[in-house]
Each structure stands twice: as structure tokens, then as C-alpha cells.
């Protein structure tokens, strides 16, 4: 059945605008997995008519610098860090990890603000991270690495983290203007190379529309990923609402985002491709998520209302997990969660 007609029949998706030609192309290119994984990490309290909010502490986000970040990138200004749990000393990190585990956490996103070289200064924390992993081997840690050299990547591996995440940027103008950073596109590729050389599961992200809401270096970034073959790839879409008024970001065009999803799917046919939790809100989010589903992405974090029903109508079996999508290698976390999906059922308690 025509995918557009399916979308039109789903109440939360009524009114969204999808491009018929692109949807047709996605349908013809189908052959994608028959399963879609929906992720509901608890660093954002999230509920729709289809997915009920799960435990508050299943997958928290922790910042080793609190809200502080030297870069003050134009799209964020440190606001993304502000909602995370601060752990600004190794002792505090140990205490936070223990508290979260006591409250039912299965893992955490570990990140922090960058220095002026786009490095997160984890050195004082590695011994504590190792201690956490030794004491709680089932507790998963996904680390936002920022830029690393070979030695830093090795120290991350030695600390016992489960997944390494970084944003891959493919345009010098974006690095200079948005990130205010004196680093090169090659530095990002070298970071990817250094991480992939370890035994870590490496899950790079591409932020679509990072150049003030416009596409610029995304396809160069995609080529980098083709060269280095990470464990999985997360696509996110820039959130325009944190930008200051004097340097505004537009909402990236949903059609262009959808086109990129299809190109990325075809460029990386054997690598899990996921839509991460950062993206614009409202109608744009519903359009982006619908394209992601139809393009054959393997997973979506915090899916827009109506996605579970759309997946079922497209014949894809939905699974739901309360983890970060960057832990999605091989789907093992979804399986471990013991969650279920039932196509055709649109109200799923998690």
C-alpha cells in the first residue's frame, strides 16, 4: 500500500508534509530490516500516546563538567549539558554512578563540556570509570569522546567503557564558525581512525543541518564513515532552539533530511543506522521520523507520536528499549531488555 496513504490514516501524523517522490523512492529501495528499534533513554522524560514513560533512572546522562563548556558552540551554548546530572570530581562520579545504579540505572551516557581544542578532559576520571566497570560489569557506559589522539583513545578503551561516540564534522566552515574551533576536518577523521583502531564499539554521530540549519559537510562526514566502518552510526538533526538570537539556526528542511537518510542507508547498508534523540520538535520531528522509518533506519530514539503505528502498518516489527541508541550494536540491548512489540497495537507500556 502507498506509504503516504498509510501516514494519512494515522491520527498523530495527520497534517505532516512528506514528499511523494522521495517516499516512492524509499518504497522502491526497501529491502531494509523488518525490525525497528525504538529507544527511550531516561535522560529525557518522554511519553507519547504509544509509549509510556519508563523508569526515571534507567539511562541517565552525566556531565563531568556540569553545564560548563569552553567551546560555547552556536547551536548549544552549553544548554544541552545543563539538564544532565553533574559529576565534577571523580568522587562525585563514583557517588552518582552508585546512586543511579541503586535507582535502577542500566547504564549511562558520560560526557562533559570541551576545552578549547574540543577535548573532554577525562584523565582524572579514568580510574573511577574503571572502578565502576569492575564493580558493576553489567552497567553500560557510553562515552562522548570529542576529539582524541591515539593515546587518549587507548586510555578510553582501558577504562572499560562500552561505547565511544563522537560528532563527525565534514566542513571546515562549520568547525570554525559554529564550533569556534581551530581544528581541521582531518582532526575529526583522525579521531575516528584512532577510535576504530581500539576494540571499543565506536558509534559516531553526524549532526544534520549543523551549519546554522543548513547542510554543508554532512556528505563528507558520511564518506569518512564509509572509509572507517564504525560499529553503528547515529544521525541527529540540529535543534535550533538553543541558538542565541544573534546567531539563529533554521530548522533543517525535512525533505533534505529524508534524502540524506536514504543516501546514508544506501552508503552504509551493513552498518546499523539510527536516528538519535536530538532533533527539532513538533511537525518537523514527525516528518523526520517518518522519513527515517521509511528509509529503513534501524532505530529511532524518542520517536514522535504515531511512529509505532506507522511501523506496524509498514510491516516492521517494533521493539522498545530504555537505553541510549548508541548501545544498539547488534540489537543486544533490546533483546536483553526483554521488551516486546506487537504490530498493530498502538499503546505500548514500557
Amino acid at each position: 500500500m502507498d506509504s503516504l496513504k498509510l501516514v494519512a490514516g494515522i491520527e498523530p501524523l495527520q497534517g505532516i508534509v512528506l514528499d511523494a517522490a522521495l517516499v516512492g523512492e524509499m518504497q522502491r529501495a526497501a529491502g531494509a530490516t523488518d525490525v525497528i528499534d525504538f529507544y527511550n533513554p531516561s535522560f529525557k522524560s518522554y511519553a507519547t500516546s504509544e509509549i509510556v514513560s519508563c523508569g526515571k533512572s534507567a539511562w541517565p546522562a552525566v556531565s563531568i563538567t556540569g553545564p560548563d563548556c569552553k567551546l560555547q558552540c552556536d547551536h548549544c551554548k552549553g544548554k544541552i549539558l545543563a539538564s544532565m546530572i553533574p559529576a565534577c570530581t571523580p568522587e562525585e562520579l563514583w557517588r552518582v554512578a552508585n546512586q543511579q545504579i541503586e535507582h535502577g540505572a542500566r547504564g549511562m551516557l558520560l560526557t562533559g563540556g570541551s576545552n578549547h581544542r574540543n577535548e573532554v578532559e577525562y584523565d582524572p576520571y579514568y580510574a573511577t570509570i574503571r572502578h565502576i566497570k569492575d564493580a558493576f560489569p553489567e552497567f553500560r557506559i557510553a562515552m562522548h569522546t570529542a576529539l582524541v589522539d591515539r593515546d587518549m583513545a587507548q586510555r578510553m578503551e582501558d577504562s572499560g567503557i562500552d561505547a565511544a561516540m563522537m560528532d563527525v564534522i565534514g566542513a571546515q566552515e562549520t568547525i570554525t564558525q559554529v564550533y569556534h574551533l581551530k581544528r581541521s576536518v582531518d582532526d575529526f577523521e583522525r579521531t575516528l581512525e584512532n577510535l576504530v583502531a581500539t576494540r571499543l564499539k565506536v558509534v559516531p554521530h553526524i549532526v544534520l543541518g549543523l551549519h546554522y540549519g543548513h547542510f554543508l559537510g554532512e556528505r563528507v562526514a558520511l564518506e569518512m564513515l564509509r572509509r572507517h566502518k564504525p560499529s553503528a552510526v547515529v544521525l541527529v538533526v540540529v535543534m535550533p532552539f538553543y541558538a542565541p538570537a544573534h546567531r539563529p539556526f533554521g530548522v533543517p528542511d525535512s525533505l533534505e533530511v529524508g534524502r540524506f537518510f536514504l543516501d546514508a542507508r544506501q552508503a552504509l547498508p551493513d552498518i546499523p543506522l539510527l536516528l538519535g534523540c536530538a532533533r527539532p520538535a513538533g511537525q518537523a520531528k514527525a516528518e523526520i521520523d517518518a522519513y527515517a522509518l521509511m528509509a529503513g533506519l534501524n532505530g529511532i530514539a524518542h520517536p514522535a507520536d504515531g511512529m509505532v503505528e506507522l511501523a506496524a502498518r509498514l510491516g516492521r516489527k517494533a521493539r522498545i528499549a530504555s537505553t541510549c541508541c548508541s548501545m544498539a550494536m547488534g540489537g543486544e540491548m533490546v533483546a536483553e531488555s526483554g521488551l516486546w512489540a506487537k504490530p498493530g497495537v498502538s499503546s505500548i507500556p514500557v
Partner: peptide, 15 residues
């Protein structure tokens, strides 16, 4: 008690 719409903030999405 059913949704009139969705509100989203940096740390919350809900009806």
C-alpha cells in the same frame, strides 16, 4: 485525560 497536544523541553516530552 487524553492528549490535547505535546509539549517538549530539553528534558521532557509529554502530552
Amino acid at each position: 485525560n487524553k492528549s490535547t497536544g505535546t509539549v517538549e523541553s530539553g528534558k521532557w516530552v509529554g502530552p
